[in-house]
Design a protein around this nucleic acid. Structure first.
Length: 846
RNA sequence: GCGAAAGUGGCGGAACUGGCAGACGCGCCGGACUUAGGAUCCGGUAGCCGGAAGGCUAUGGGGGUUCGACUCCCCCCUUUCGCACCA
């Protein structure tokens, strides 16, 4: 018998898998495919156990699916562009390419040492020209379709990262990466017109049944669809008007003023016409300079002195400018209905503007309630609304919107919170945007045959706010592809989220030099069947990927809408109550664990400690437990090795003992539970505990046999001093073989190195990567006797051991006859007896 | 403030569609084997009362529905997450 020495097994089997190309796959139309994917990694340098947890989850799923007969694509790659590498270059002088490639090499080694079953031949890195060429290719397709466009706009600017951020990358007014407070700048920027797909992205959410509800809700809120109406308020003494957007046109008779955002286009005109334009502009500028926090802290505004006309009451209403109205949403102007909107109410109170009640809420007071304490924003029935009095809000909205249309003042309108995605970044380490600016031809796309536009080697990284590419004359100075005259190359690079918006498609055909991927390959592999990663990507990456998939569908490369069928958001691994991070100094390095325990104990522990979605606190003692379990399995298999080898692979004719039948039952029930837990529910922790139960059962069974249990004193029962190595009964050998082989097979997704070694020692020489997953027989899994608890008035008073198929009527008789039950029933009236079929009997007495 | 999810032994966590609460593991206690054991094997382990049989109380707190509630409904507390002037 040999000892369990996991570290040796790790390298032995990792080498074999590579030599056998065990995880490499090709399209095979004859077999069902399964695409398992974990979000690819930013090559920061070291993977900690928090990252690694996700890869293990995906690996358990991928390995199980392989054994269940699927052609499994399980690739990995690197989200290799990005700011940290460039910042490191500014600080330490190491070129981003050098540091990134070194980090990739190191992290790849870490993942390989964990035995993650990746198809490494399909590895991609987004910083390589063969990959980012197709970012540029897709950009050109979007440009042709008007989905990539350029405009000057006020953008989020991170003063620390020295670059623009998309709205999705601003979290609580701060940079998602470094946490600096965001300022704004006016810049010429490239945008992707994601809003063109807003409705489709919203409706598609309904089809994502296997996504966490939380993520679906977050995306729905982010898209933020609002149905309402655009209504024009005429300006008194002017031919101009103010368009407002409202979702509550039913309250329009209560609109007592109009408010413009400081950014509204009319503001400058009002300023110019004001008695003191300089003072006017100063007040507006004060609002515009306010950051988000200041705007949030209190509503402020001033009266422009201008009047607009409420199109329904015909009354003049004052026009204000205020800090709480957003320039970039709706029309940048609102009609204020203080009686029925909290924000308008607060503002009206502060500046003593009129409040007029026009809605009586359902079930509200009969008399008109003057809003004293706050706005009433619920729907109700219209009052003080002329001919619309008495209409419920929803009907009034339809009627008023129709009337607005008839009078040419506006129309029904749908607004989204979602804005177009700004993708220009003033940094070096990203994909060059493939356009050329020509003095005569304007913006000219780089011709496709000139792709990729390669990143030039830049030696100096200064960290100044303009793109480092602008400092490279050989890159900037080009001839115009249209007219041949001197022109200037675009020097901004793309947001790295562009890279990650389609990488899952590239894995289908990663070496294609002509297209991002072959449509036929994508048609076979896509969509991703199981996708796992951090919930922090609930909006950014997952929304962009859904957008890109639709664009590529419209380009004709794919035929489906949604890229990810099933999504799992894995919980983080905490240490000392905090997320692991280098700066906190609380990272657990997987390599340390590998040296001490081997890959399998780490893998098993991480899967066993909690359900995959849940956050966990790292605990070394738990890892000890997993190691002990694997060593226990090892001893068990070694102990029974000869018997298993002698055992029949298929059922033997002899009659089984009760213990043997019980073991078979446990084996088949364990297969049933484990299969459902891994394959359907993704409850990997309970799958492991089922396997532990089977091992415990095997130890108990072993004790009762001639050869005894491993490690126990009961071995050598016949006392002749010679070790007994093979069970005396063929039936015993068969049931033990069945149990141990099933155990090793089902353990293999979690502990592949240990399982492979045991599988080989048990006499199998083809490896178990594609060994068939054990099948269970439902009849064998079912016990022939069950214990039925009997309750009297809700408390368990007795237990009946009965055949599994006992009729309900018989169960009822047995329950009432049971002495323990009788003791609680005697002398009282039985009012009711409920038999829950096969589960329990409930007796109600008085 | 709005919205969502979650609160179960000393700890991590089980409990499928309402049916024996605490599977499995950690920790702890005891036993066996041992020169030794931090190895291994076996047993015990929610709390309280009891010598035992057994009983009572328990899934954040309080109500409710039900023969029966960790599970469903209402109110409250706590924690976590998301959104936060989107008209």
């Amino acid at each position: 018998m040999s000892d369990y020495q996991p570290q040796q097994l790790d390298s032995k089997w990792q080498q074999r898998w590579t030599a056998r190309r065990a995880f490499e796959v090709e399209v095979d139309a004859a077999r069902p495919k399964f695409y398992a994917l974990e979000m690819f990694a930013y090559p920061s340098g070291h993977a900690h156990v928090g990252h690694v947890r996700n890869y293990i989850i995906g690996d358990v799923v991928a390995r199980t699916k392989r054994m269940r007969g699927f052609n499994v694509l399980h690739p990995f790659g690197w989200d290799a562009f990005g700011l940290p590498a460039e910042n490191a270059a500014i600080k330490g002088g190491i070129h981003p390419e050098t540091s990134t490639l070194a980090n990739i090499a190191h992290m790849k080694g870490q993942l390989q040492r964990l035995g993650i079953s990746y198809a490494w031949e399909r590895e991609i890195a987004t910083c390589l020209p063969e990959y980012y060429k197709f970012n540029q290719w897709i950009f050109l397709r979007m440009f042709e379709r008007g989905l990539a466009y350029r405009r000057r706009s006020t953008v989020n600017w991170c003063p620390s990262c020295q670059t623009v951020l998309a709205n999705e990358q601003v979290v609580d007014g701060a940079c998602w990466r470094c946490g600096s407070i965001i300022t704004t700048r006016d810049l010429e920027q490239w945008f992707f017109r994601i809003t063109a797909y807003a409705d489709e992205l919203l409706q598609g959410l309904d089809t994502l049944a296997a996504w966490p509800e939380k993520v679906v809700v977050m995306q729905r809120n982010w898209i933020g669809r609002s149905e309402g109406a655009r209504v024009r308020f005429a300006l008194a003494a002017s031919d101009a008007g103010i368009d407002v957007f409202t979702t509550r046109i039913d309250t329009i008779f209560g609109a007592t003023f109009v408010v413009l955002a400081p950014e509204h286009p009319l503001v400058e005109r009002f300023a110019a016409e004001a008695p003191d334009p300089a003072a006017f502009r100063a007040r507006v500028q004060a609002f515009r300079a306010q950051d988000r926090e200041a705007r949030m802290s209190g509503k402020e505004g001033f009266d422009t002195g201008r009047q607009a006309v409420n199109p329904f009451t015909g009354e003049p209403v004052p026009v204000w400018i205020a800090n709480f109205v957003l320039g970039e949403y709706g029309t940048g102007a609102i009609m204020a209905v203080p009686a029925h909107d909290e924000r308008d109410f607060e503002f009206a109170r502060k500046y003593d503007l009129p409040i007029r009640v026009v809605i009586r809420p359902a079930g509200g007071a009969a008399a008109d309630v003057v809003a004293e304490t706050g706005a009433v924003s619920s729907d109700g029935v219209l009052v003080h609304s002329g001919p619309y009095d008495g209409l419920p809000s929803d009907q009034a909205r339809r009627a008023l919107t129709a009337e607005v249309g008839r009078r040419g003042l506006g129309e029904g309108s749908v607004q989204y919170r979602l804005k177009d995605w700004g993708i220009s970044r003033q940094r070096y380490w990203g994909t060059p945007i493939p356009v050329i600016h020509c003095p005569t031809d304007g913006v000219v796309p780089v011709p496709e045959d000139q792709l990729p536009v390669e990143l030039p080697k830049v030696a100096q990284f200064t960290g100044r706010g303009d793109s480092p590419l602008a400092q490279v004359p050989g890159f900037v100075n080009v001839t115009c592809p249209a007219c041949g005259g001197p022109a200037r190359r675009e020097t901004d690079t793309m947001d790295t989220f562009v890279d990650s918006s389609w990488y899952f498609l590239r894995f289908c055909d990663p070496r294609n030099a002509a297209l991002p991927f072959d449509p036929a390959s994508a048609a076979y592999w896509m969509p991703v069947d199981f996708y796992s990663g951090g919930v922090e990507h609930a909006i950014l990456h997952l929304l962009y990927s859904r957008f890109f998939t639709r664009v590529l569908r419209d380009v004709g490369l794919v035929t489906f809408d949604e890229p990810f069928t099933r999504l799992l958001t894995q919980g983080m691994v905490l240490k000392d109550g905090a997320v692991m991070s280098k700066s906190k100094g609380n990272v657990v390095d997987p390599d340390d664990m590998l040296q001490r325990y081997g890959a399998d104990a780490l893998r098993l522990y991480v899967m066993f400690v909690a359900p995959p979605e849940k956050e966990v606190e790292w605990n070394d003692a738990g890892l000890d437990g997993s190691y002990r379990f694997l060593a226990r399995v090892w001893r068990l298999a070694e102990h029974w090795l000869d018997s298993v080898r002698h055992g029949a692979a298929h059922e033997v004719p002899g009659t089984l003992t009760e213990a043997e039948r019980a073991l078979r039952r446990k084996t088949h029930d364990t297969i049933r539970r484990t299969t459902i837990d891994i394959d359907e529910r993704i409850h990997l922790n309970t799958a492991v505990s089922s396997l532990m139960e089977l091992v415990n059962e095997l130890y108990a069974f072993s004790e009762q046999t001639a050869i005894g249990a491993p490690g126990a004193r009961t071995a050598d029962r016949d006392g002749d001093g010679a070790a007994v190595t093979v069970a005396d009964r063929a039936e015993t050998c068969f049931v033990v073989r069945e149990a141990i082989e099933a155990l090793v097979l089902m353990l293999s997704p979690f502990a592949p190195h240990t399982a492979e070694e045991l599988w080989e020692r048990l006499g199998h020489h083809d490896g178990l990567v594609t060994a068939p997953w054990p099948a269970f027989d439902a009849d064998l899994a079912r016990p022939d006797e069950i214990v039925i608890p009997v309750q009297v008035n809700g408390k368990v008073r007795g237990r009946l051991t009965v055949p599994i198929d006992v009729p309900d009527e018989r169960l009822r008789e047995l329950a009432l006859a049971d002495p323990a039950v009788q003791a609680h029933v005697a002398g009282r009236t039985v009012r009711k007896v409920i038999v829950a079929h096969g589960k329990l009997v409930s007796v109600v007495v008085q």
